[in-house]
Design a protein around this nucleic acid. Structure first.
Length: 337
DNA sequence: AACTTTTACAACCGCATCATT
DNA sequence: AAATGATGCGGTTGTAAAAGT
């Protein structure tokens, strides 16, 4: 059968629109309203395909379009919605007044996607990626920044990870770090109390604790980045989720949880953090979710930007710095060294 | 200053979906 | 029910501007 083309494209102009064309299209739509795009070009005196006119109008000329840089809130919304909806740009844009699907898509591809990749987050699954090529650099920067937070980018890949591979990767990285930065290595690990330095054997050993709360691999990590679970210390410097009984343990070997940067108050104590209910009310995310997530943790947002970076991008870069991890049962660093 | 590479974004293309005949 | 048309959607490309060498 075959469909007829949306318009006869011979002799029709393509490429960037001129101000004159924009004016013609705007004037016509303002008088006659949008729609009937097939016949519009001829009536409006444009040598363009109707489809092109529709796109130009909806993506650029429409008066209610908001232009300019995306705000924090908009970016957070995009990430949260994308973790739930995937590449449903139109659906995402529908929740961002004044933004078009094309704009959201472009912004995702040029900004957010790259940032997530840099931070070790898979932009498709929103789960942490374990790329051993990056392990050293991330861990190095983590240690040098006196925080273990970024390691979560690696260890959070519970669904993707082969435990043996993890041991190997961590061992290699830790060894090289220890050789390259022994002072930092010795200085910071005890502070974070995730590790302890066994001075007698000059080996690293993990303080083990039964894992009481784990997030399921089904939980998008970028959502988790903005989900500050109320947590509390539960001994030995480890942090646990108080409502652990509500969580699932998909892979007991690995235990990933969200927690505040050690230098800032926990989510439950931070008044700047948007309330759980407020978020879900704003976005109605529960209604959008196609598959239930196992974690009761809500989608949250502003909490990810509470450290004091100066530039917008720097603050956004901090996305990755708000996760902590716990070492899984049975993972003994002495095996690595 | 000239050239190359990268980035950002507008626009295009093909397919899907829905409405109408 | 099938054919056809109109519109929407998402992936991809083209290109100007910015950044780097």
């Amino acid at each position: 059968m075959g469909r007829t083309p949306c318009c006869d494209k011979t002799g029709l102009k393509k490429g960037p629109w001129t101000p004159e064309e924009d004016l013609k299209l705007t004037n016509y739509v303002q008088i006659h309203g949008p729609g009937n795009w097939r016949t519009l070009p001829k009536k409006a005196g444009l040598e363009r395909c109707g489809k092109s006119c529709r796109l130009r109008w909806t993506n650029y000329l429409r008066p209610d379009i908001k232009r300019g840089r995306f705000s924090f809130e908009e970016e957070e919304t995009i990430i949260q919605l994308h973790s739930v909806l995937g590449n449903k740009w139109s659906a995402i844009a529908g929740r961002l007044p004044g933004r078009t699907d094309n704009e959201v898509k472009n912004y995702w591809n040029t900004h957010i996607r790259k940032r997530l990749l840099r931070n070790g987050i898979d932009p498709v699954t929103h789960a942490p990626r374990l790329d051993f090529l990056d392990l050293s650099s991330i861990l190095s920067s983590t240690l040098c920044n006196q925080s273990l937070a970024n390691v979560s980018n690696l260890l959070g890949a519970q669904a993707l990870l082969n435990p043996q591979l993890l041991r190997l990767g961590l061992a290699t990285t830790l060894l090289s770090l220890k050789q390259e930065n022994p002072e930092i290595f010795a200085q910071h690990l005890p502070q974070n109390q995730q590790f302890c330095n066994n001075s007698q054997e000059n080996q690293l050993q993990v303080q083990l604790q039964p894992s009481t709360c784990s997030t399921s691999a089904a939980v998008p990590c970028t959502s988790m980045l903005s989900q500050m679970e109320p947590i509390h210390a539960c001994g030995e410097g480890l942090l646990c989720c108080p409502n652990a009984q509500e969580t699932f343990v998909s892979q007991p070997n690995y235990h990933l949880q969200c927690s505040a940067n050690p230098t800032v108050p926990l989510a439950s104590e931070n008044s700047n953090i948007r309330s759980v209910d407020g978020c879900s009310q704003n976005l109605s995310l529960d209604s959008l979710r196609s598959t239930p997530i196992s974690s009761p943790t809500p989608l949250n947002s502003s909490s990810t930007f509470i450290n004091g970076s100066s530039s917008m991008d720097d603050e956004r870069e901090s996305f990755s710095s708000l996760l902590k991890f716990e070492i899984p049962d049975g993972l003994d660093f002495s095996e690595f060294l």
